[in-house]
Design a protein around this nucleic acid. Structure first.
Lengths: 124, 124
DNA sequence: TATTTAATGCGAATAAGTCGCAATTAAGTA
DNA sequence: TACTTAATTGCGACTTATTCGCATTAAATA
């Protein structure tokens, strides 16, 4: 299924590219200058995830946040790393800290989600 | 606010005590032999969390899972540790692996949620 | 310019979790 | 043991995040 370039896609991508933080759908919708339907934003984001252009983090608020990760881009593959969600400014940022874990035999990992929650340096 | 012993509370607590896995509200409701209202189950679980009797994990499916953690009990305080969610048997278990991270200056952590997703040894 | 099919908007649907409120009941006290 | 009070429950409605179906629009390419 070939992907097409559309205003919605470009707007979301450029917003994420210029953001150092992971954004939720409603944050994206608010920050966009053009009006894009809620469902469309989700579809655009999920397509980006499928194409490994952005990665999705689910925080302990149960919401999805999306980010283009510099680290992932540099190494050209998705790296599991910690995220920090600030309760004050309600944003999530990718930390440098990589995720390390030991796994009992027979377990296969497909994904790792690690989110620290608290107050970031800007807000404290 | 003093806590009371009720059938609902005891049923949920005994179910969690006998389970090695973290359970979601609907899993708990299904496994209980007595009928307890959905809202009540949530309230019981949240009270347990407030009292540090169970801990809550939010997985990347956005759902809340609740567990009594042996490790936490032994050390008598909540320890951040990795969790493993099996996509096949849809359960979450507490792993031994403790969570270690480096944090930039000025950040304050209140909570850490780390979930690995994949297939557990039973299911693979 | 015409064709094809991916992408969009809209509204409805789903699912998890919470809330208000009246009714119930555990637990302390007379 | 009966009485009191405040914690707990059940119910139904509500919220919020996300998805889905479907008709319509519009990229891309021949």
């Amino acid at each position: 299924m070939k992907r097409r370039n559309t205003p919605a896609k470009e707007a979301v991508l450029s917003l994420l590219s210029n953001s150092k933080k992971a954004l939720s759908q409603d944050a994206i919708e608010k920050e966009l200058s053009i009006n894009i339907n809620r469902a469309t934003i989700y579809r655009v984001l999920n397509r980006f995830c499928d194409d490994n252009i952005v990665h999705k983090i689910v925080a302990e608020d149960g919401k999805q946040y999306f980010a283009i990760c510099r680290k992932c881009e540099e190494t050209n593959k998705v790296q599991y790393h910690f995220h920090f969600r600030c309760l004050s400014c309600d944003s999530i940022e990718c930390l440098e800290t990589p995720v390390n874990y030991l796994l009992p035999n027979g377990y296969k990992v497909q994904n790792a989600t690690c989110v620290l929650t608290g107050v970031c340096n800007n807000c404290s």
